[in-house]
Structure formats: structure tokens, C-alpha cells
Amino acid sequence: MTLITGAAGGIGAALARALAGTHDLILQGRDEGRLSALCSEVGGARPLVLDLTRPGTFGEAVAGLGRVTNVVHNAGVVELGAVAEQPPEVWTHTLAVNVVAPAALTRVLLPTVRAERGTLVFVNSGAGLRANPGWASYAASKFALRALADALRDEEAPHGVRVSTVYPGRTATPMQQKVRAQEGGEYDPADFIDPATVAATIRFVLDAPRDATLPDVSVRPGPRGA
């Protein structure tokens, strides 16, 4: 089974469609209706309604999932703002969803992922490589997510678990639409990477032969007119 967090839209939904038919899927989200519709669309995937801000509930929620081979940590939140302006609540929520939740969910799933010699994929961001003005809280969470993946990679190598980080550039998703609104700019999906392209990259990471690990993969927009 492959578990995808944040599966109800954007990159997560595109990945569910990309893996349908080749991977048995568990799709996590908070909107039960949207999850159920996507599960039906991709052919019998299993919904997992889970609030990522409540890590204390993770153990019970995943106890009945059975064999989980792969986990794609895709869920994330963003709220732009200068350090001088953002209240602690924004920082706390951003770090909770973008860092604490992946760490906590990984911890409870590691026994089965180890048994399956599976793969953990952390969907990061260009902001996990460089912090720009107005992006401090989000970039801090993504830098921390990179640190989590890097440490975990070496910790789990003896167990046969592969750990990869994928760094998408700006992608045509509802999150990007929100970001553009916060930046005061227009949103045209054609200006950004197609979510299906990022999904295809993640699928390549998951399906790579066992004699290779892809620690860090960046996905950037192609040249105009390509």
C-alpha cells in the first residue's frame, strides 16, 4: 500500500491518479467527501480522514491499515508574511502541519515500512532550499522538513528503507492560487508546473529499482515555448 497525505487536491490528487492501477492507495485528507470521490475515481483506493494537527490520534488511525510500503508526505500549508508581522499562531500551525505531522506519522508507520523495505517521500519546495522575504515561516518549515528527511535517510538505511525529498518549483495548485493572491498577483495555471508532472516525478522515485536511492530531486519549470 502507498499512503499519500494531502491527497484531496493539487499534487496529491495528481499522484493518486498517476499511481492508480499500479499501487494500492491510501489517501489522507480532512474532507471525507472529496476523499471518497477521488477514491472512487481512481478505483477502490482507501480514504483516511485524519487531522494532521492532532498527532496524538495518528497511532489509532493507522492501526488497521495493514501493510504500508510507501508513504508520500505531500500535505502542507502556507501563509505569507514578514517576520515582523506574523503572530506565533501562524508559525505554530505551519510547523505543526509541515514538520511535526510528517515526523509523527513516519514514526507510527515505520515498523510496517521497515518490514516492507519501502520508500518515504517528502514533498518539499524550492523554499526548502532558499528563504525569500515574506516566506520565513513556510521556508523554516521546509528547511526543517529537509533536515528530517536527511537524518531519517541515514537512520533507516540499515533497515532497507529509502528516503527521498522532492523539491517542486511553483506548481499549478490551489495552494499556488492562494500564494499568488497573497502576493497581489494574477494566477494563470499555464505559468506554473502541471501537478501531473510533479506526480510523474514522484512516481519515478517510488518505482526506481532497488539498487538506487534518489535522495534529492528538484523539479523546475521548463523553458518558455518548450
Rank of each mutant, 00 (worst) to 15 (best):
G128P: 00
P102A: 02
E116N: 07
T112K: 14
H93A: 15
T112A: 06
T94Y: 07
L105S: 07
L109R: 01
L95V: 10
N98P: 01
V100N: 04
W91S: 10
N98D: 08
R114S: 09
R107F: 04
L109G: 06
H93F: 13
H93S: 14
L105G: 08
V100E: 11
G118V: 08
V100C: 09
W91N: 05
L105M: 06
T94L: 12
N124T: 05
N98F: 00
A101N: 12
A103Y: 11
A103D: 05
N124C: 10
L120C: 07
L95K: 06
V99P: 04
V123H: 12
A96M: 15
F122S: 12
V121F: 09
T119R: 15
L105A: 03
T94D: 05
L120P: 11
E116C: 14
A127G: 06
A104W: 06
V97G: 04
A115P: 11
A101S: 14
V99I: 15
V100I: 10
R114C: 08
R117Q: 13
R107Q: 15
W91H: 05
L120A: 09
L109Q: 02
H93Y: 14
W91Y: 15
L109V: 02
T92S: 13
P111A: 01
G118D: 03
R114L: 15
A96Y: 12
A127F: 06
P111Y: 01
T112W: 12
L129I: 00
P102S: 08
V113T: 00
E116L: 14
G118Q: 05
V108E: 01
R114H: 08
R114I: 12
L95D: 03
N124A: 02
V100W: 05
E116S: 15
F122E: 04
W91G: 05
T119E: 12
N98G: 04
E116T: 13
A127V: 00
N98A: 03
T112S: 12
P111K: 01
L109F: 04
L105V: 09
L95F: 11
R114P: 14
T119M: 13
T119W: 06
F122R: 11
N124W: 00
L129T: 04
A127P: 00
P111I: 02
T119Y: 05
A127T: 01
L105P: 11
A103V: 06
R117G: 07
S125N: 07
R107N: 11
L95P: 01
T92D: 13
L110Y: 08
E116A: 15
G126T: 00
T92M: 13
N98S: 04
V121P: 07
T112L: 10
V113S: 10
L109W: 04
A96T: 15
H93I: 01
E116I: 08
L105K: 04
H93D: 14
L120V: 05
V113D: 03
R117L: 09
L95R: 11
T94C: 06
